[in-house]
Amino acid sequence: MSDMTQNPTPETRKVTIKAFRFNAETDYLPYYKTYEMEVGKDELILDLLNRIKWEHDGSFSYRRSCRHGICGACGIKVNGKPVLSCKQNAQELVDLFGDELVFEPQSTKRAVKDMIIDKGDFWEKHAAVKPYVETEVDPHPEHETLMSPEQVENFLDADYCIQCGNCHYACPALEVNEDYLGPAALAAAYRFTIDPRDEATDERLEITAELGSGVWDCVKCFECAEACPKDVNPIEKITKLHNLQFEHHVAERNVATKHAEGFVRSIKKFGYLDEQDIVLYSEGLGVVKHLSEAMKMIKAGKVHPFDFQKKKMPRSKNLKEIQKLIEISKTHEL
């Protein structure tokens, strides 16, 4: 791994930086340029970006502004890990990845110049969820609009988002589905939807319920939770939005909502998920598109198509307990 193990407290460590270089105006293809430097134990990734520019190549470009983790400008990827340059200690990454660090923009395909990307898609999606409180404001209020600590607690961590884009450009669903709103926009949607002053609850829930662009297109990979430098945990907010859609009766019956609700239906009957039924139930007539895969599963002996009495279906022991718990614990229906 690293030199750290032999020498626990070195002042500096020799690091090779491979930086992504590209100028959309002049370059046909991007390339990587190597810089070697001694890195001090307190240096941040931002310091290394500065040193490339100041000591090696004045044309090297990257975004930076506040220098203390609040403006969200300096997000890049180091060895594939999204970081906020001004918050991330450099030697810590050497410990993780070894003494060759690869600096890349958040999204290489959106690169404009070196670390700078066109974040247009990020801002467009952010704007699409109405990321503000919608309400009639009395210009001459007689008293403050008070919120209880519990109400604030509900969205406080979502409010820490600095729009750095780390989660957005770490999201694999966005990578293959450009309509998807993505984790940052959805976390913002949650933050304003549960703000007690806000009056656009259903409207925002409807925007985020759309198939193809909304919460149902999240692949649940948790890349966003891992990528966030402010611990916003966007996927947790996405789960809450899912629940809110059912609570507010915004959820329409479709393949995605039935897929979620179908779990209760199965667990009630068997304790386990009936894997065949969940596909039939969620898809309805659309099930025909799974025919070729169903045939493959039958051929391999994985499923039993003529088991109408569900004799092959496993059943949890003490199933009555499960049924009772569902009865007394469920919070809503589709």
């Binding site: 899912h242 979620a260 179908g262 779990f263 718990l325 469920k330 919070t331 809503h332």
Partner: peptide
């Protein structure tokens, strides 16, 4: 994770 989407408490 799908039941969680429908009814987190359950």
């Amino acid at each position: 994770s799908h039941l969680q989407d429908f009814d987190e408490f359950l």
